Amino acid sequence: MKPTAYIKDRKFLIAFYFILMAFISSVMYLDGTVNISADNIIYINAVSIVFFFMYLTWDFLYQRNFYSTIHEMITSRQEDFVSALPEAKTNEQHAFILLLKQVYEQQNARIEALHERKREDRDFFITWIHEIKTPIAASRLIIDNSIGKPMDTILDKLENELDKIDGYVEQVLYYSRTDSFTKDYVISECNIEKVVKESVKKQAKLFIGKRIRCEMNHLDIEVLSDKKWLGFIVDQILSNSLKYTDQEGIITITGHENEKEKMLVIEDNGVGIKAEDIDRIFEKGFTGYSGRVYAKSTGFGLYLAKTLAVKLGHTISVESEEGKYTKMMIHFPKPLNHFDVT
């Protein structure tokens, strides 16, 4: 810190000192009851100025080291500046250092969150690339082995693989848009039955291929949601049920309503979920025991479903018993004015 900068910072104190001394000197000189000569007043002012500037000099030297260290850290662009901060000598400096540390910690937390997001994105895309390569390779194999086979059979198999590719592309598209979700949704009245039937129709070949029966009950319910995003959520849950339900199984889709909420329940009689995995199935990238043993899984479908549901104001819960059933429930809370509050 330069002396000129210090004097500039203390300009109001210096101005206050001279105004105060001028006032005191005037009172002493003009007050007839005080027997003091002009020379004595000048002497008092001269001595007080000397002491005042001695104080300013001491205060400058006392604080110069602190500010010089700060200035050096700024000019050197030191990265880990918190550990190099000098010791505070005043309450003002102490508050300043605390603020710097708080900003530094908050910035580190943001950077760590960005790094974590980058790592998660990298893991997702690596897994996704490996997953999408499977139907592509299968399509090539179907074409290579198509000689002498009926064209309808070949086209049907290729269409199945294209549907898988389309599903993976849709998943990565929704994943890439989760951060900009607020720019791309419209809340309106949605008919659950229409949303469910579109999802079932989209995955009809899987139902037929595995001879899985689908039962739908009491779905004529209106909910406040975004039809496109809700459809994707249902797609992910239904796809998960199809993946872990054995041949000739059954998936039951039912609507429920009470005074507090409306609910869509998708239940299958598949392999179920191990008790220790239930609390983690909505975590990003978590595949669990079933995902590792029964089918290949990216572990992102249910994560996306849960994330988008929360953004829409819905919740998803799960009940399951290993080897018996899995029940996924999408909850649509009703506005408070839809029921009495006592």
Rank of each mutant, 00 (worst) to 15 (best):
Y244S: 08
I273E: 02
M216A: 08
R280I: 10
E276Y: 12
L219Y: 03
I281R: 12
S225N: 07
K227L: 10
I266E: 04
G255M: 10
V234M: 07
F232P: 07
E276F: 12
F282M: 08
V223S: 07
Q247D: 15
G272C: 11
L264D: 10
H256D: 14
S241F: 03
I221E: 01
L264G: 08
S239Y: 06
Q247N: 15
S239D: 11
Q247F: 09
L264M: 10
L230H: 05
N217L: 11
Y244C: 12
N269I: 05
E267N: 12
G272I: 12
E276L: 07
L264I: 07
S239V: 02
M216Y: 02
E259A: 00
V223T: 11
K243R: 07
Y244N: 10
W229L: 14
D235K: 10
V223Y: 01
I251M: 10
N269G: 02
E259R: 14
C214F: 06
I221A: 06
I273F: 11
W229E: 11
W229V: 14
Q247C: 09
A275R: 12
I266S: 00
G231V: 11
L224Y: 03
A275Y: 12
N269D: 15
I250P: 00
I221T: 06
E215V: 08
G249R: 01
N258M: 03
G285H: 00
R280P: 07
K260S: 01
E276N: 11
I237W: 01
V234R: 05
D246K: 13
D235V: 05
I251F: 07
F282S: 06
Y244P: 13
K260Q: 00
L219S: 06
L242R: 08
K274Q: 11
D268K: 01
L224M: 13
A275F: 04
A275S: 02
D226W: 05
G249Q: 01
K227A: 15
D246S: 14
I250V: 15
K227N: 08
I221H: 05
E222F: 13
T254W: 00
V234E: 01
H256N: 15
N258P: 05
I251N: 05
Q247H: 08
K284S: 09
L238T: 14
R280F: 14
V271P: 06
L224N: 09
M216C: 13
T254R: 00
Q236W: 01
D226N: 09
E215R: 00
D246I: 02
V265P: 03
N258Q: 04
F282C: 13
E222R: 08
I237N: 03
I251T: 08
D220S: 15
M263E: 15
V271L: 04
E257Y: 02
G255W: 06
K228D: 13
E259I: 07
L224S: 15
K260H: 13
G231A: 11
I253S: 07
S225C: 09
D235C: 10
M263Y: 00
E261A: 09
H256W: 00
G272V: 13
T252C: 12
D279F: 02
L242N: 14
E276C: 07
G249L: 03
E261C: 10
I253K: 00
G255L: 12
Y244K: 10
L264E: 08
D277S: 07
K243P: 09
D268P: 00
I266Q: 00
D277R: 03
